[in-house]
């Protein structure tokens, strides 16, 4: 599937979305990535990446109804499209294949 390789940050964003499921929106994705990688993520870079993924058709957005609290706001929720899921699986598979036979077993919960 040429052309569907994901850049590192794109991969992080999509993985975070996969982790968050229904609750994926700007702030939650940002926090998820920062929590898991320990690397500071700027909201601007995140939204730029989301927009790019949206243009590629890998991510879809939905404006939610306002939160049911005083002053609640609408959120721009993100979901992986079927193409997005496929691309994610593809990238993960590629990554796995590239690591085959290397002694680089991933450590889970890696927050060093």
């Amino acid at each position: 599937m040429p052309g569907k390789f994901l850049a590192e940050f794109e991969l992080y964003v999509m993985l975070a979305m996969a982790q968050l499921g229904e609750n994926a929106y700007g702030a939650s994705i940002r926090k998820e990535i920062q929590k898991r990688t320990g690397r500071p993520v700027s909201i601007g870079a995140l939204y730029a990446t989301l927009a790019r993924l949206g243009e590629k058709g890998l991510v879809a957005f939905e404006i939610s109804d306002p939160q049911p609290v005083q002053g609640g706001r609408a959120r721009k929720h993100c979901q992986l499209t079927p193409e997005g899921e496929e691309a994610l699986q593809h990238s993960a598979a590629m990554l796995g294949r590239m690591m085959d036979g290397l002694d680089l077993a991933p450590q889970s919960g890696g927050q060093s």
């Binding site: 929106y25 700007g26 702030a27 926090k31 939204y47 927009a51 609408a74 959120r75 721009k76």
Partner: peptide, 16 residues
């Protein structure tokens, strides 16, 4: 910020 995302970004920032 790009106008399309302006308000969402501001809300996200405010939340955190």
């Amino acid at each position: 910020c790009d106008p399309e995302d302006r308000w969402f970004v501001l809300d996200d920032l405010e939340e955190e």
